[in-house]
Amino acid sequence: MAKEIIDGQTMTRALTRITYEIIERNKGIEDLVLVGIKTRGVFVAHRIESRLKQLENISIPVAELDITPYRDDQTHDETDISKIKAEPLDIDINDKHVILTDDVLYTGRTIRAAMDALMSAGRPKKISLAVLVDRGHRELPIRADFVGKNIPTSQKEKIKVSMKEIDGEDKIEIE
């Protein structure tokens, strides 16, 4: 049975904290670009964007990146990453500081695919990673710069992130 480990309020606070950290570590946020990994990473990106706007009164561009086959809650057999063709981004990322956002950081393969897609779309100055949950079990040398919540999990367990925009409510469950 699914057990709620993070409620809506805690999630809201975590996103706010990530936003503060982004501001803190980037003197001037003008060259920031948020790229959300579909599906829930996009909502994470938008939520950070709206917070930045409220706090600093600056609109940061948000783009979506679709790399569905690599989602970590699906069985990931040895798909050849090179075959994945991401949709082109609709914003310019050249010389920008791209903050890649996703809901869960697991093996790191999704992020790697996302980075490949970004590199093929342009030449960003820097890529950072912001995730709502880091659940461990990395298979690649990837580390998030901004983490909402570290949640130790066994590999058998599943992390289910629900977000208001698509699931009606904010919560993170483990099953």
Binding site: Q9, T12, L15, T16, Q54
Partner: peptide, 10 residues
């Protein structure tokens, strides 16, 4: 008294 968190509107 009500206080609003600017970032989230909470």
């Amino acid at each position: 008294l009500a206080v609003k968190e600017v970032a989230s509107g909470k």
